[in-house]
Amino acid sequence: MIQYLSNNHEVVLAALRQHIYLALLPILIGFVVSLPIGYLGVRFPWFYHPLVNVCGVLYSIPSLALFVFLPVILGTKILAPANIVVALTIYTVALLSRTVADGLRAVDPIVTQSATAMGYRRTRRLLDVELPVALPVILAGLRVATVSNISLVSVGALIGIGGLGQLFTRGFQLFYLEPIIIGIILSVLLAGLADLIIVLIQRAVTPWARFQRGGGTA
């Protein structure tokens, strides 16, 4: 294992770099896109059920199919990393917009009513009251999306661009365990690290949560 790493550290590092890029860019884009979509699901109640259903269907499309099929729709090259980024962004949006809607819906009406009574207009109430209160739920969804994105990137290796997944296909083709094991370990570590970072962010931005027990667990 160490032997393999020292002989191939450049390949492994390049794969890791690509993996981080391919997994995290969709998270950022997806998060920004999901907030307004999820809000629409709360603002217009009739929109909630179609939103949940569409998200469910989008999430059930196999990643491999999406990776292969996006170039046909987008007109990109089959080996363009953009395909992976767009596909994972779709999954992120499918997962997060529902979580955002659920989080905002779960805000205690008493809280929103008090905010209204204190003179908050809709936009400020959303940004200053509802969003912060819904944040633990939204960030729990973000953790799920981040961790599953990181493990999904490797499927892209079947079409030639998959970060650490390339170590899997390489090991599989050469019938060689080391790259596969290194790929799995790095992928799991990366997911754990990203998860930890989000937990720390959550702690920093929701200081009130530490003073009450029995809040929702992820």
């Binding site: 953790r143 799920v144 961790v147 599953s148 990181i150 493990s151 999904l152 490797s154 499927v155 290796a157 079947l158 650490l164 997944g165 170590l167 899997f168 296909t169 090991g171 599989f172 019938f175 060689y176 365990l177 596969i180 094991i181 790929g183 799995i184 992928s187 799991v188 997911a191 754990g192 998860d195 992820a218």
Partner: peptide, 18 residues
């Protein structure tokens, strides 16, 4: 979370190799 972070493709190829 641990299960989600395990890449299925990697696990599959590891199992096939083994």
């Amino acid at each position: 979370n641990a299960g989600r972070s395990l890449p299925t493709l990697g696990l599959l190829m590891l199992m096939v190799t083994l």
